[in-house]
Design a protein around this nucleic acid. Structure first.
Lengths: 146, 146
DNA sequence: TTGAAATAATTGCATAATGCAATCGTTTCT
DNA sequence: AGAAACGATTGCATTATGCAATTATTTCAA
C-alpha cells in the first residue's frame, strides 16, 4: 500500500467507521465501476473517466480486498489478468452509491450527467435501480461461473 | 482554506462530483453532527469523538459553506459564536448518511456502536429515521427563529 | 473593572497521501 | 523471436493532514 492510514477506527460511529474504509476520492469510484459499469479488470478501472493513477488504483484494490468489499478471480483468458468483483459486503454498498447519485442529481445541477433512463429510475424509484443493478451483477457472475 | 483541491469536477459522474465535495475523512462527520447530534457550534464539532483538528475543521466549515451545504447564523448569546445549520442541500444528504450507517450496521460488525432505538429504526425503516431527523431539525430551526 | 477563561480561528512545522511519469518483469500476441 | 499488453512498483514533487502553540477577541467572574 502507498502508506498506512492512521485513522482506523476513530470511534464506534457507523459513519466514521465507514469513512475510514471508503472516505476518500477513489475507493467508491472503483466500486461504482464494478457495480454500474461492468468493469472488472485493472485496466478498466485505470482507463475510467477520472484517470486514477496506477499506484493509487493498486493501493485501493488491495485495501478493498483486505476489507472484503471486493474479491478477485483469475481471468479465464490469461493467468496474469484478474477479474475483480463485489462481495456481498460490497454489493451492500450499492444503496449508498445510489443515494449519493440521487443527491447529486437533486442538488448539483447541470454538471452532473446521467443517462435519461437511469435518471428516471434514480428519481422515481431508487430501490428499483438497486435491484436492477444487483440483477445485472448476478448475470455477470453466472457468465464467469461464480 | 488549508489548500486547494485539484480534483474539482473530474467528470460528470454523480458519484465523482459528490466525492469532490465530501469525499474525505471529515466533511460528512460535520454534517452528521449537524444532522443527528444537535451540534451547531465550532466547539461542538471540535470536541466530537473523532477529535478533528482546529485547522481542518475551519477548512471544512468554509468549504461546506461555499458549497451551500451548510450556512450559519450569529449566536443569540454572543456576537463571536456562530450557529451552523444544514441548508436544504445539506438536509438532502441525510439519506446518504442513513444509507452509510445502514451499511456499517449490516457489514461492519461489532465495532459499530448504535443506540438500540436508532438501530432498530435504521434496520426496519430507514426512511422513518430520515423523517424523524428532519423533524428534529425543524424543531431546532424553530427554536432559533429560522 | 480587571484579569482569567473561552472561543474561533491561524501559524509553523512534521508526516502522510496523492499525482505523475517512468520503469519493471511477466505474459500474451503476431 | 520480438513487440505489445498488463499489472504493478519506484522515485520524486506536490498537496493534504495532524498536531501543538499561538493569536485576537469576547465573555465571564471576582
Amino acid at each position: 500500500m502507498v502508506a498506512k492510514n492512521e485513522h482506523a477506527n476513530r470511534s464506534g460511529c457507523p459513519i466514521a467507521c465507514a469513512l475510514d474504509i471508503f472516505g476518500d476520492h477513489w475507493a467508491l469510484l472503483v466500486i461504482r465501476d464494478l457495480a454500474f459499469f461492468d468493469r472488472h479488470e485493472y485496466k478498466d478501472f485505470l482507463h475510467s473517466e477520472e484517470s486514477i493513477s496506477s499506484n493509487i488504483l493498486s493501493d485501493r484494490l488491495k485495501k478493498l480486498e483486505a476489507y472484503s468489499i471486493i474479491s478477485s478471480l483469475p481471468h479465464p483468458d490469461s493467468q496474469r489478468r484478474k477479474l475483480y468483483y463485489l462481495t456481498n459486503k460490497g454489493k451492500d454498498l450499492i444503496p449508498v452509491l445510489v443515494s449519493i447519485s440521487r443527491w447529486s442529481e437533486q442538488d448539483l445541477g447541470k454538471v452532473v450527467k446521467i443517462p435519461p433512463a437511469s435518471r428516471k429510475m434514480l428519481v422515481n424509484n431508487p430501490d428499483a435501480l438497486v435491484q436492477e443493478t444487483l440483477k445485472q451483477i448476478e448475470q455477470w457472475e453466472k457468465s464467469v461461473g461464480l
